[in-house]
Design a protein around this nucleic acid. Sequence first.
RNA 1: CGGGGUGUGGCGCAGUUGGCUAGCGCGCCGCGUUUGGGACGCGGAGGUCGAAGGUUCAAGUCCUUUCACCCCGACCA
Length: 421
Amino acid sequence: MRRSQLFIKTRKEAPADEESKNAQLLIRAGYIHKEMAGVYSYTLLGKTVIDNLSQIIRQEMNAVGGNEVLMSTLQNKDLWETTGRWDDKAVDNWFKSKLVSGAEVGIGLSHEEPITNMLRSYISSYKDLPVYTYQIQDKFRNELRAKSGLLRGREFLMKDLYSFSRTQSEHDKFYEKVAAAYLMIFERVGFADDITYRTFASGGIFSRFSDEFQVLSHVGEDTIYVDEAKKMAINKEVYTDENIEHLGLNKGQLSEKRAVEVGNIFALGSKYSDALGLKFTDESGQQQSIIMGCYGIGVSRLMGLLAEHFADEHGLVWPANIAPYKVYLASLGEAAEVSKAADGLYEALSQAGVSVIYDDRDERPGEKFADADLFGLPYRVVVSQKSLEQGGFELKSRTSTSTEVVPQEKLLSILSDSRQD
RNA sequence: CGGGGUGUGGCGCAGUUGGCUAGCGCGCCGCGUUUGGGACGCGGAGGUCGAAGGUUCAAGUCCUUUCACCCCGACCA
């Protein structure tokens, strides 16, 4: 992508109506645009980050047998009344609207009801199960207060997986499989296990605990207690002597931390399947309940937390797997030989499958360097009179302060070598 | 929803006890000089001062109502 074709413009100053670092950086760098409190649009840069995150999640969900689906945003009130979740007293953050006829519809805040209902059309036998479905799409929640940029919005991108199992043990096995997949996902996006904790949290009716995936961060809304040696954590909401003992933890080994919840998995039992009449016939011809589980990851929140976490005083510093492009290629000056060399390198990189932003604008060096830093791409390559005289192009990684001049073939091999998966 | 704060060209801000043509920086347009860390000169364009109502000879400034945004708290099925 040529920078001259990107419509975004970077800013030196942070917007006055954002306090959070993630929103300030992402807006300054032109990744997102604020529509209103808790609602953001994504430019090509931001959308590519979202796509990269989604792709990693998709791969891991497919690996555990997930069927990706796309559910409707408009929701059938009847389904939610069946489970008792239409009432504002039961769920108080609905966005609701009306058809011209006057009939009420919901705007999707979650999808247990519709997915369960949809499966009634397809599931009837033990042979049809288990089934795992997942979706990556916008959810709408009428939060009393949106805050912290992408970390708590009213409209946000979420991956939700729902599992439908025949027995509790089948469910339990899958549950653990997803838990492992989650840790893999967070590792792949850059949150390794030194800061990511599977955390015991309140479980609802069907299990003693649910599992949250918490990334340690001072901007976190959650307080958790961490046993670093055992790699275990417990949410403040269930931090009682009884639970600590139940989990085999020792209060003296636990330290209090702030964390951001990036994922949450929990058991649903047969609450929704029974309520909506989704059952299966077992080998002996008997009707049986279906055991459900629910597994969420806040994709846009994850992006916000990545921006919050991977940044320095100059701007964003994306992990290689997440960066919207791998290389920021900048030409300096308007000399014909420089433009020609830069054009050629852009072609060569593109053909080698290296994703690159080519800053072909007529701007001064300082501005191009500042933008390269702010964008946070893993590598910066500079084409200039100076680099050409030294026999090549100047290569610098976003995190290092030193540069080296390398000839084209070597540059191509370096940049396509550590190609992102 | 309780408390605190802020709304002035695209962005960041100033604007005194009400006073006459509403300023500054960035960005934008034109010309010229520049070109390795967000250049400089000259000349331009762009504003219902969040909105509505009121007080006054006169309102960005005072009063009332209202909307939006940020932060703390509560809430987060």
